[in-house]
């Protein structure tokens, strides 16, 4: 935010053409609120909005956001069937948004949503990090 506000980097809002949806990781929201008393819901959306005007929220979002299904070390266990079944709601939520690019600022969510889009036969769904979207929108002089 500091880089964008102060003009240290410039972003081009027209580089991303597809419809984008934003996913809240538990660590930015519920966990952060519990541990530090503040949930980062506004900041990532503010940054995403500087990259593209064509973005939506998943429903439900923020405090009630559905978990990606890969956190807490579950991706490291052998409980793959359970993890896949768990994600059915997340995938439904993504389908419902109509977006083809899901933006996440978390490595676990990134890995899980990407893997589940494959499992549930949604090969056209792209998953990117928030900073990746920023890097893709950079104006390079």
């Amino acid at each position: 935010m500091e880089y964008i506000e102060s003009g240290r980097i410039t972003l081009d809002r027209s580089k991303i053409s597809q419809k984008v949806a934003y996913h809240d990781p538990c660590n930015y929201g519920r966990k952060s609120k519990e541990m530090f008393g503040y949930a980062y819901y506004h900041e990532p959306r503010w940054i995403l909005n500087k990259c593209t005007p064509n973005w939506v929220d998943l429903e439900p979002s923020r405090n009630s956001q559905y978990c990606c299904g890969g956190g807490g070390g579950l991706m490291l266990t052998t409980l793959d069937d359970q993890r896949e079944y768990y994600s059915r709601r997340k995938i439904e939520q993504i389908k419902h948004s109509g977006a083809s690019l899901i933006v996440v600022p978390c490595h676990s969510c990134h890995g899980q949503i990407k893997a589940m889009a494959q499992k549930y036969n949604l090969p056209d769904i792209q998953v990117k990090y928030l900073w990746e979207v920023v890097a893709d929108s950079l104006v390079v002089e």
């Binding site: 519990e34 807490g72 266990t77 409980l79």
Partner: peptide
């Protein structure tokens, strides 16, 4: 039990 390991620690329950 396997219960503690099935959780993703996402915090929806606590919320």
């Amino acid at each position: 039990s396997s219960l503690p390991w099935l959780c993703t620690l996402c915090g929806r329950c606590e919320n």
